[in-house]
């Protein structure tokens, strides 16, 4: 049995990431990759919504922040263990996503974009304003993911969460649900006429996507140890969009790889300062315009074409 190209690419990348610490990669780069895994989760969750269901959202970074703050405050306020708090963060983000998805059912395209921007900004403003709980823009310290864990341990935990999340999403997308999603993307009324419960699956997609973002945010919080409302900003959302688009937002595996790739490049090109973000913006535009399947999607198609010819 041959596996689909995207799965083979994903497995190869996963094998590489598992091998890197054993090949002697230093703590600094392991930490960079760990943050990259967070962005990968975010980019994958966003592309689930945009690439598969065709529903645009600008609330992904805000939802990640919601998951992060919920998780950190659950540990601080209720004294729950971190893994449980992560689940609570994901559940709250998913619940709000369910609500927003239900509210905005009838909205499409730019209208949906504006609605999700509004929700994202309201969330960010509320987290900044309620400083008696969140310490506002000063930031909130988070309990460590695992007490006394070294960088390599955190790296493997984050990698495991990323792989588990992407595998779960991939498995869901492979069932009939994935087909429902794509049917909604291609033609909502047509799908409904063929018996797809459009309302249900649109809301489910929103909730699933935001829950994964919330989980990612919680993971980030407990890895980094400090969160602030900037992680919910529209600029941050822009980077997630750039990562998913550059990787290939029609495929969760490719967009996840886009997240890791961009984060690594961001660190690697540190000396050119903000130019790297300008360049990423430019690449995002060029890819959208000329290679909408993204870097990995285009490469995969190219590879398939070459093999077909030989």
């Amino acid at each position: 049995m041959t596996l689909p190209t995207d799965v083979r690419v994903g497995l190869a990348a996963a094998a590489l990431f598992v091998a890197l610490p054993f090949a002697g990669l230093g703590d600094y780069w392991l930490y960079t990759l760990t943050i990259g895994f967070y962005y990968a989760i975010l980019a994958a969750s966003w592309s689930l919504l945009v690439g598969y269901v065709g529903r645009i959202s600008f609330a992904q970074a805000a939802m990640s922040g919601l998951g992060a703050y919920t998780s950190v405050m659950t540990v601080l306020g209720l004294g729950w263990p971190v893994p449980l708090a992560l689940v609570v963060g994901a559940a709250i983000a998913g619940a709000l996503g369910l609500f927003i998805g239900w509210l905005s059912l009838r909205l499409h395209g730019p209208y949906l974009g504006l609605t999700t921007i509004a929700f994202a900004e309201i969330l960010r403003i509320a987290v900044t304003a309620e400083h008696q709980w969140t310490r506002g823009s000063l930031g909130l310290s988070a309990a460590p993911l695992i007490d006394g864990a070294t960088r390599p341990v955190l790296y493997f935990v984050a990698l495991a969460v990323l792989i588990a999340t992407v595998a779960l999403l991939w498995a869901i997308l492979r069932t009939r649900i994935g087909l429902f999603f794509q049917a909604i993307r291609e033609d909502e009324e047509g799908a409904a006429s063929l018996g797809v419960q459009v309302t249900l699956w649109k809301v489910v997609a929103f909730a699933l996507s935001t829950a994964v973002a919330g989980l990612g945010g919680g993971l980030y919080a407990h890895v980094v140890g400090l969160i602030s409302p900037t992680m919910m900003s529209l600029q941050e959302m822009g980077y997630v969009l750039a990562m998913a688009v550059i990787g290939g937002f029609h495929n969760i595996i490719y967009s996840a790889l886009g997240g890791v790739l961009l984060q690594v490049l961001l660190e690697y090109l540190r000396e050119i300062g903000e130019w790297r973000l300008a360049i990423f913006g430019l690449i995002t535009i060029l890819i959208l315009r000329f290679a909408p399947n993204g870097l990995f999607g285009t490469l995969a198609a190219l590879g398939a074409a070459l093999r077909g010819r030989s």
């Binding site: 300008a278 995002t284 535009i285």
Partner: peptide, 15 residues
Amino acid sequence: YAIMITFGLAILLQN
């Protein structure tokens, strides 16, 4: 496409 390309343009111009 229009939403994402203008958002990408915003990232480019800002940075």
